[in-house]
Amino acid sequence: MAMLSGKWALVTGATAGLGLAVAESLAAAGANLVLHDLVAPAEAADRLKSRFGVDAISIAVDLSKRAAIEAMMSDLLARLGGVDILINNAVVRHFAPVEDFSPEKWDEALAVNLSAPFHLVRLALPAMKRRSFGRIINMGSIYSTRAVAERIDYVTTKTAIIGMTRAIAVELAETNITCNALCPG
């Protein structure tokens, strides 16, 4: 029996790259998957179902919209009873010097890269607590600890995700729910 058999994992930003690689690893360990992206990653879900024999659902949601996040999580609660594993991987990045950085792009980066993980954790925790099990992984970056020019949104939000992860981990320290950050780079 696979280590994560019967568990449901939500991976945001799962169409390609790191998100898809994480989803593949979870499927290989037996987890059922909810694959999220702006465009529902149906092909990826079908591939993972057939390759690993797990259930997989694909969902398209704009994570810059709190109401859309709340609707998705409410639907997952009704359909699955919630998720056991949450991988906050989705991200937006923009490139510009600070003085030229669009306020709209700044707001979008804060919404997707920082507020969405907060809302997803907030909404996933009640079901995890009822099950006395949960794993939350927030994707940081090498830029969580250092800066680079013309990436104010990415450096700021990836630095903040580390602080958010620490705060959540401390709150959950006496439960069987963990919250960690991975910082690829």
Rank of each mutant, 00 (worst) to 15 (best):
P41E: 02
I69D: 13
R135M: 03
A28G: 06
L18H: 12
R166L: 11
E99C: 04
V148A: 13
D46H: 08
P97Q: 03
A173Y: 09
V155N: 12
S132H: 11
E24Q: 14
G163P: 07
A9Y: 01
T178E: 00
L110K: 09
D55V: 07
T145S: 13
R47H: 13
I162M: 13
A111M: 12
L125A: 03
L18Y: 12
V61E: 08
M1F: 09
R66H: 15
R51A: 10
G13V: 00
L76Y: 10
A71K: 14
V22T: 11
E171W: 08
M73F: 12
A67H: 13
S58T: 05
I59Y: 14
A71D: 15
G19F: 00
L114M: 04
G13S: 08
M73L: 15
G185M: 04
K129M: 06
F133V: 05
R47I: 10
L110P: 12
F133R: 11
I161S: 01
L4W: 01
S141H: 12
L123I: 10
I161G: 01
L110T: 10
G30D: 05
K65M: 07
P126F: 06
F118K: 14
A14W: 01
A96R: 07
K129I: 05
D84L: 00
V155H: 12
E171F: 06
L125E: 02
H94Q: 10
K158P: 07
L110G: 11
A31M: 00
P103C: 05
N113A: 09
N89K: 10
T175N: 07
E150A: 11
A16M: 14
G163M: 03
S102V: 09
T12W: 01
I59S: 11
G163A: 11
G6F: 03
V22K: 02
I162H: 09
G134I: 04
T12R: 10
S132T: 10
L80R: 06
D84R: 08
S132L: 06
L86I: 02
R166Y: 09
M128V: 05
L125W: 05
R151H: 15
L80C: 07
S58L: 02
A9T: 02
R79Y: 06
T12I: 02
A167G: 10
G19V: 01
